[in-house]
Amino acid sequence: MKVGVVTFPGSLDDVDAQRAVRLAGAEPVALWHGDHDLRSVDAVVLPGGFSYGDYLRCGAIARFAPVMTEVVAAAHGGMPVLGICNGFQILCESHLLPGALIRNDHRKFVCRDQRLRIDNAATAWTSSYEAGDEIVVPLKNGEGGFVADEFTLDLLEGEGRVVARYLDDNPNGSLRDIAGITNERGNVVGLMPHPEHAVEDLCGPGTDGLGFFTSVLSALVK
């Protein structure tokens, strides 16, 4: 099972995502932003970081990277795609997911261990969880406030497309405490917190994040 991890100029958590894929039991494959090539991977992770320096708008330039043409096409074909943090921003900019991510309401970068509730355990990236599971994974962002119009928010909630919500304090002003969402088909997931930083007890607040990466393996087996 091959999971591609895209490196854009300014990607930072690509090595971490690769490690998470490995620990979940799959083979990580490095993908380069400038290539029109997904190298026969079965799923793709768009990692965190500051692609293209977050210039213009987070994710706005990455959307036009050659590799994204292939990612968008594959996603439309049903390939599982997970965007974490900057990856989530890129998915929104690419219109694979609705809404947008704006500057945190308190205007500061925030890094902390965040409690989340998994609301939708039926996506390609969350099937290892049960709906209602509470997990702790690191959160770190400067522009993590999820926003969308009321209609879209109602739609997301009505269709069960909110994948995860923030518990305790909302860390960034996200509307309706939304930490992650999915597309209608459930193969594309965008998540602001970082499950790849919670895959081993040694270097994070536990292993609660590993489920995102094991989920995609079982999704691919099916």
């Binding site: 958590d13 090595v15 500061k108 890094c111 770190k140």
Partner: peptide
């Protein structure tokens, strides 16, 4: 000091013990 240190990413690269 977390008002300060929470503005720093301490997790990136996944090797922070």
């Amino acid at each position: 000091k977390s008002w300060i240190t929470d503005q720093y990413d301490r997790y990136v690269r996944g090797n922070t013990v």
